[in-house]
């Protein structure tokens, strides 16, 4: 069960199965909660389209947050505007230009995809 492919990475050609998506986003939701994401919080997601984006989005929703997507292709001023407007405390991104654009915003923590997949320290 859960072997159905929900997305194929256009870069690597690797598929993400439903089971993988459920498992990864569940673990990621825990990482977000641990970093203080609460019901109703906006969470910035700035990732290229692909399995990671899907996992991040599902994780934010599962954690009770509101996804505030930011397309990584935006130029710096537009990125900055979006980030400031979100008033989000947390951003999911691995992209240096997105991290730079969060300077001086309300973003307290930037979480990379690797952090989302990291095992919980108590596990």
């Amino acid at each position: 069960m859960g072997e159905r492919i929900v997305m194929v990475d256009s870069g690597t050609g690797l598929g993400l199965t439903e089971g993988q998506l459920d498992a990864r986003s569940a673990a990621a939701s825990l990482q977000l909660r641990r970093r203080g994401v609460r019901a109703g919080d906006s969470v910035l997601v700035c990732l290229p389209v692909g399995p990671d984006l899907l996992v991040a989005t599902d994780a934010v929703i599962a954690a009770g947050g509101v996804v505030w997507p930011v397309p990584p292709e935006l130029d710096a001023p537009a990125l900055r505007r979006r980030i400031l407007a979100s008033r989000a405390r947390l951003m999911i991104s691995d992209l240096p230009h997105a991290v730079d654009a969060a300077d001086g915003s309300r973003v307290r923590m930037v979480v990379g995809v690797a952090d989302l997949d990291a095992p919980h320290p108590d596990a």
Binding site: D22, A23, A26, S29, L30, A62, G64, A123
Partner: peptide, 21 residues
């Protein structure tokens, strides 16, 4: 499905578990 995911996050919180398994 989003509601299911949220319930699962809550269960993990309450039980201190870290995965669906």
């Amino acid at each position: 499905p989003a509601t299911v995911a949220r319930h699962i996050a809550n269960i993990m919180d309450k039980l201190g578990h870290t995965s669906r398994a």
